[in-house]
Nucleic acid binder design. Structure first.
Lengths: 359, 359
DNA sequence: ATGAAAGCGCTAACAC
DNA sequence: GTGTTAGCGCTTTCAT
């Protein structure tokens, strides 16, 4: 009796809703048109409803056809609210990151799309509060997992632990200052070692390097790779060939000149290891303007393998990040973590040396 | 009587739910803890509930404090389901687009974030079906508006109209083959005119141009700008100085050589208008290798103002897209459209010439 | 100023 | 096989 009343009420309201709400087709609309229950439609379209809900092939056919004709689009908010997955993955990016990082993001989006996920991005710069807010925000939207590219700041230490315990799961790209988390890292150190090996092989005796600071991990890894590279090649460290300066973080012609002054003019370096391809190109051009031959007098290496590095003159010897491999692994690992959140994954990708004319 | 029963049932279930569902704090949890109704909480936190819902300052204070302490994060799915905005904006990008486009996307994300919106991206390439599927998908997720960068294909003609009538609203970047839609466009034509003006001013007599095809809009605009530029400068068109070839779509050294062979060696061009900075850099370097002086023998211009264009040697005269202006306008316009969907906006951004050494 | 009740669109458990 | 019912977390209208 009660149920009957409620049902009538419901039906009435449904019709009313249909009239006012001119936007989208609902499951119930299809059910009504197909003259079946909503569960049947749900089952036919999305195979939900548990195992004891079955429908005949004929019914399924009919429902599918009608849904198609009505251009039915399930409402994700409703599905999520009813406990289903959102199929959204989020990315946190440093808004000052070099553009080449977006090459990686683009690939990540592609991989995710293949697996039926949507991709949400958020950017910030050196702001732990902001980072945590974004993570909260992602969680509000039901984001299932996060790929972070925005945590390599000296200031981000164990406070990050607060972030760690949060849902959704996070895969950090580049090891964060944090115990017991999932991360995937490009072995920057190995990249620099390969460069040192290569330069030594080419007969360079005074290999210089410049770095922005000792506090961010990517810089530390470069320095470490440099030291290890020298060591395995039996070259002793000359500290004058290592220049640290925070302002080098942002490439500029002035910086390039300063680096040349110190390393080449003053310290007589015959090779310069640049922290990225932009710097390499600038240094090469400044050297040429100052009458040096590259690689005759000074060899120069880059890092990132940007588009232009291939057609610079001379073309630039550099390290390829293997972003496609990174993207593929990142997506696979993150999805694994989401499925079975007990696992902890720490993986490393070896980048490769690309030999070109600048060495 | 009935309502009483239902209420008891509800309360019981709520507690049960709280025990099983260990994930997130709900509005009701705060209400219970603060010993107020859910509406009061809703009002305090989000100022919802209409005008006839009021709470005392003391109550508000108390609620806010408790929400804070419990780290309450409203569930967007529930809010959306209850009819609120999603605050999500989507972008459609061509997965083969040059990386510099992501510079623009990054800015768009920043602007959107400032206004409290989240950003979802989807990529595809030359696939109208795919494009429409993404739009449907965005709509499933409650995306409020879409910025499209992925519609400039010769194949995408009036079929796009099907897309037009869809919700969410779409702002096209670059005029689509579609009547009566919202678009924002960089005036590529004006950019090329500025280049022609500049080259003529520099005394160039035989200005060559190469283009990929006559069917995509960006190419048509370039060609149009070239013709207009010649006309206003009183230079008559020599069709041999215009080279169309579909394969030029993807920059390569071979293409650069071919272009030099045709335009410089064969047609004796003293200036080459490249379709982007990548090509310009390649052509400059190939010219130098073949013994030409740039800009002495041949001037070369680019388009896009990439990072490296400034420190190439010679640095590259190019056109700056003004992506920041584009991003700002795109966001403002889209949000306007969302608010009042009756408006139709067609705006154009004038790019600027950047004079450097290559001319 | 607060409470009660219904509903957003969908899923799931259970009864028939 | 199909129908019934309750509930996800939130908002809103109406009543008090």
């Amino acid at each position: 009796m009660i149920s009957r009343e409620i049902k009538n009420l419901e039906t009435e309201k449904m019709y009313k809703a249909k009239d006012t709400n001119n936007t989208s087709i609902r499951l119930a609309d299809i059910a009504r048109k197909a003259n079946v229950s909503r569960i049947a439609v749900s089952k036919a379209l999305l195979n939900t409803g548990g195992n004891n809900v079955r429908i005949s092939d004929a019914t399924r056919e009919k429902i599918l056809k009608i849904a198609e004709s009505m251009n039915y689009k399930p409402n994700m908010a409703a599905r999520m609210l009813a406990g289903k997955k959102s199929n959204i993955i989020g990315a946190l990016i440093d808004s000052h990151a070099p553009l080449c990082l977006y090459e990686c993001l683009r690939m990540i989006e592609r991989k995710l799309a293949e697996k039926g996920y949507r991709f949400m991005i958020a950017q910030q710069h050196n702001d732990l509060g902001g980072l945590m807010e974004y993570i909260d925000d992602f969680s509000r939207y039901g984001v299932e997992g996060i790929i972070s590219f925005a945590h390599d700041y000296p200031e981000f230490n164990e406070q990050l632990a607060k972030v760690l315990r949060s849902k959704p799961d996070i895969l950090y790209i580049g090891k964060p200052k944090l115990k017991n988390c999932n991360y995937l890292e490009v072995d920057v150190s190995a990249g620099i070692r390969k460069i040192v090996d290569h330069l030594v092989r080419k007969g360079r005796k005074r290999i210089g390097i410049f770095l922005a600071d000792k506090t961010t991990r990517t810089m530390q890894l470069r320095y470490q790779g440099y030291l290890e590279g020298l060591k395995t090649n039996g070259v002793s460290l000359d500290e004058n060939l290592v220049v640290f300066n925070n302002k080098f973080r942002h490439p500029s012609m002035e910086n390039a000149s300063e680096i040349i002054n110190i390393l080449v003019k003053q310290e007589k370096a015959d090779a310069i290891i640049s922290m990225n391809d932009n710097y390499a190109a600038m240094i090469i051009n400044q050297l040429k303007k100052s009458g040096y031959d590259v690689p005759g007098d000074v060899a120069v290496t880059g890092f990132d393998n940007m588009d232009f590095s291939e057609f610079n003159s001379p073309s630039i010897t550099t390290i390829n990040h293997c972003y496609d491999a990174l993207a593929e692994k990142a997506v696979n690992i993150l999805l694994e973590i989401i499925m079975d959140n007990k696992i902890t994954v720490n993986e490393v990708i070896k980048p490769e040396l690309i030999e070109r004319e600048s060495t």
